[in-house]
């Protein structure tokens, strides 16, 4: 094989990347447009005023607050459950092991609308009123897999003899957990947690079924998308959301770089 890529391949690859990124960059431009009644291109003028307008919108702040609360709690729950599950599957071969990996993947392998409508009908049947907790219930469920994937990848790479070595040197299970296992999986968990946070912060399909009248930031945006009323504010919110989700993703990438090859996979 020649080690130089053909021109056609290069164009296709770089063209594909541009296709992925230009639309997002476009939003950044729109956040500064002076036009507030249509999506006119090119923008007739540029201004910073919409940032101030957005800053003073209580509904945006409220939605943001709810989204952050939900994302934090869901991430915590997913961290605990995903890590436990990965540890169980990694360390032993038991009956039904494959079924468990499948069960963990299912909430994201099946369309989100199914998780959503399932939860809603279950809430109906069990007579559970909508609350922050009903949103969290759904989010934590599909966030487990993200933590699970990251933790499982790290467990696979961590030699089983490390745990044996620790106990051989006199450490109990708890000491081994604290001094060997946790330090070795910490970055994978942090990365998994970041991604779970991003996933929850952004989720809309399941949330529409489990939120009732509450508004998370994505639901606020969805309503603007269906019935645009304040385009400039939406533009600014969209841009901020992009920036806010990029940070944890970048952090997760640098945390697992060179150790787990494909940490971000399996959203």
């Amino acid at each position: 094989m020649n080690s130089k890529a053909s021109l056609g391949l290069k164009i296709a690859a770089i063209g594909g990347l541009l296709f992925l990124h230009l639309p997002i960059l476009l939003i950044f431009v729109y956040a500064f447009t002076t036009e507030d009644k249509s999506y006119q291109w090119p923008p007739p003028g540029l201004t910073f005023q919409w940032f101030e307008v957005t800053w003073n919108r209580p509904d945006v702040w409220q939605a943001l607050g709810l989204s952050l609360r939900v994302a934090c709690v869901s991430t915590l729950i997913a961290l605990v459950l995903g890590t436990l599950c990965a540890a169980a599957v990694a360390r032993s071969r038991f009956f039904g092991r494959e079924a468990i990996s499948l069960l963990v993947i299912l909430p994201i392998a099946l369309p989100g609308i199914i998780t959503g409508i399932s939860l809603r009908s279950a809430f109906n049947i069990a007579d559970i009123p909508f609350s922050t907790w009903t949103i969290i219930l759904g989010h934590a469920t599909f966030c487990i897999v993200v933590v699970y994937n990251n933790a499982a990848a790290r467990f696979r790479r961590t030699s089983a003899s490390l745990i044996e070595a620790s106990m051989d040197l006199g450490a109990t299970y708890w000491q081994t957990l604290r001094f060997v296992i946790m330090p070795n999986i910490a970055t994978a968990l942090l990365a998994g947690g970041m991604l779970a946070f991003a996933l929850s912060f952004d989720e809309v399909i399941v949330t529409t079924f489990t939120a009732g009248q509450q508004q998370t930031l994505p639901i606020w945006m969805l309503e603007e998308l269906v019935r645009p009323r304040q385009r400039p504010v939406t533009n600014v919110v969209a841009m901020v959301v992009v920036l806010v989700t990029f940070l944890p993703i970048l952090a997760a990438y640098y945390l697992t770089r060179g150790t787990d090859t494909v940490a971000g996979q399996g959203k």
């Binding site: 030699s159 003899s161 490390l162 044996e164 070595a165 620790s166 051989d168 040197l169 330090p183 070795n184």
Partner: peptide
């Protein structure tokens, strides 16, 4: 005490 085949040194 044991000396392991893959040494099992704690990487951290």
């Amino acid at each position: 005490n044991t000396v392991f085949q893959d040494y099992a040194l704690f990487p951290h």
